[in-house]
Amino acid sequence: MKFATPMFLIAIIGAAAAPAAAQSTDPAAGRRLAASLCVECHRIDEKTPAKDEASKAPSFVDVARLPSTTELAIKVFLRSSHRQMPDFILTPYEIDSLSAYIVGLTPKQ
């Protein structure tokens, strides 16, 4: 049995990873998405209140401060259906960017 050379393996791995790396997360795009969709019910930062102030939806700052909040946890949440939230259909890029934005709201210590 003949084994592939290390350079061949590196080329294969690099080619497989290229599509995933083509589009990185963008917290600024996540904020724009939050300002257009999420602000109806959520306070999206310290300065921007929810349009429906009676909404019981948590503020994104409060979500970011939860010990359990990670980018992965937010991504899983956004890919799941929730009774009290609209079923937005977001692209993977939008989910990644919105997750990066929310996690970025955690105060620096």
Rank of each mutant, 00 (worst) to 15 (best):
A35R: 07
E40I: 08
L37P: 05
A54S: 10
G30I: 04
I95S: 09
T25E: 14
I13E: 13
A35H: 06
A22Y: 12
A73Q: 14
A15C: 11
M7C: 09
P19C: 02
R32H: 05
F60H: 13
A20C: 14
R43Q: 07
D52C: 12
L37F: 05
F8H: 14
G14V: 13
H42R: 00
C38H: 01
E53R: 15
A20L: 15
F60R: 10
L33G: 00
D62M: 07
D52T: 12
L78H: 06
K47P: 07
F88E: 09
A11T: 06
Q23N: 15
P92N: 06
A29G: 07
A15N: 09
A22R: 11
H82P: 09
R32M: 05
A73G: 11
R32K: 07
I74Q: 08
L72R: 15
F8G: 11
D87I: 06
P6W: 03
A64I: 00
A73E: 11
D62F: 08
E94M: 02
A28K: 13
A64N: 00
S81I: 08
A29W: 04
P92L: 02
L72P: 13
I74L: 12
I89W: 11
P92S: 07
P67S: 00
K2E: 15
S55G: 02
Q109F: 13
Y101K: 06
T48S: 05
K2A: 15
H42F: 03
L66F: 05
S68E: 12
I44F: 02
L33Y: 01
H42T: 00
L90N: 00
A20E: 13
P107R: 02
D62I: 04
L98H: 02
E53F: 11
A64R: 00
D96T: 08
P107Q: 03
G104C: 01
E46G: 08
K47I: 03
R31I: 01
K56R: 06
A22F: 10
S59G: 06
S24M: 10
Q23W: 14
S68I: 08
R32L: 07
F60T: 11
A21E: 06
A21G: 05
A21N: 12
S99L: 00
L37N: 05
K2T: 15
K108P: 09
S81C: 08
S59M: 00
T69E: 06
A73K: 11
S80G: 09
M1A: 15
A50D: 01
L33S: 01
A17P: 12
A21T: 01
K56N: 10
F8W: 14
S55C: 09
I89G: 11
K51E: 00
I102Q: 04
I74K: 07
P49E: 01
E71Q: 12
I44H: 03
K56F: 05
L72M: 13
A18Y: 08
R31L: 02
F60E: 06
L33M: 02
S99K: 02
D96F: 08
A17N: 12
S59N: 01
H82R: 12
S99R: 04
L72I: 11
F88Q: 08
Y101E: 03
A18K: 04
L90Q: 04
H82C: 06
T25N: 13
V103P: 09
D62W: 02
R43S: 08
A73H: 04
P67C: 07
E94V: 04
C41S: 04
S24L: 09
S68P: 04
S55M: 04
A11H: 09
D45N: 10
I95M: 10
